[in-house]
């Protein structure tokens, strides 16, 4: 795979990082791309660190190993920063996205000197506001799409609505909340990306 991107997700069992990786594969597939979404399994228990991966490419994907030099890393649970080397192998030209209420500068100082772009998002707050519960994976998914640019926002939103309508056919009341979570996360990241670009040109 020469053209395409590789993403590594870090989360804890039960938080939906695996689901988010599979959803990303799903939505990227619908935009006509070749995809891979897969989890790395350890002992299955709530709260244990888990890793999930995505490859997204215009070419056919043949490699079946884990991802060691990702373009993007997504950290769904900031407490993992203490125990997992989340930036291991992460490309300088890529970015890391961390779910946290803390300031970006504070998080950036805890990333083993990672020199690439750092984005933060308070997915918990967005989820509580839109769903009344802490399901960080929808906002994190939107953040990942916004930062990686794997597909345009409108396309992503349209496909996600279709996915949620299918997935939550028996719980339609959560669809709007999830869609709102995606939009809020996208707004937040677009703003962050814009201000980063401005500070680079300044």
């Amino acid at each position: 795979m020469k053209n395409g991107i590789e993403i590594r997700w870090h989360g804890r069992g039960g938080q939906g990082a695996k689901t988010a990786a599979l959803l990303l594969a799903d939505v990227a597939f619908k935009t006509g791309q070749n995809v891979q979404g897969f989890p790395e399994y350890g002992p299955e228990r709530m709260g244990a660190p888990i890793t999930a991966y995505n490859r997204i490419s215009a070419d056919k994907i043949r490699v079946h190993s884990n991802i060691y030099h990702p373009d993007y890393v997504v950290v769904v649970d900031e407490t993992l920063l203490d125990s997992v080397d989340v930036t291991a192998g992460l490309k300088k030209t890529g970015a890391i996205i961390v779910n946290t209420a803390k300031a970006k500068e504070e998080i950036a100082g805890r990333l083993n000197g990672y020199e690439g772009r750092v984005f933060t998002i308070d997915a918990r707050k967005i989820s509580m506001e839109t769903l009344g519960k802490n399901f960080p994976n929808s906002p994190m998914l939107a953040a990942t799409v916004a930062v990686s640019g794997v597909m345009p926002r409108e396309k992503f939103i349209t496909e996600m609505r279709a996915s949620y309508e299918h997935k939550f056919a028996k719980k339609p009341e959560v669809i709007d909340g999830n869609m709102k979570a995606l939009e809020l996360a996208f707004d937040h990241l677009e703003k962050a990306i814009k201000s980063e670009k401005m500070s680079l040109t300044a």
Binding site: A25, F29, V35, G37, F38, P39, Y41, I61, H64
Partner: peptide
Amino acid sequence: FITSHAVEN
């Protein structure tokens, strides 16, 4: 897992 649990085209 490598193919059984991986979503691909």
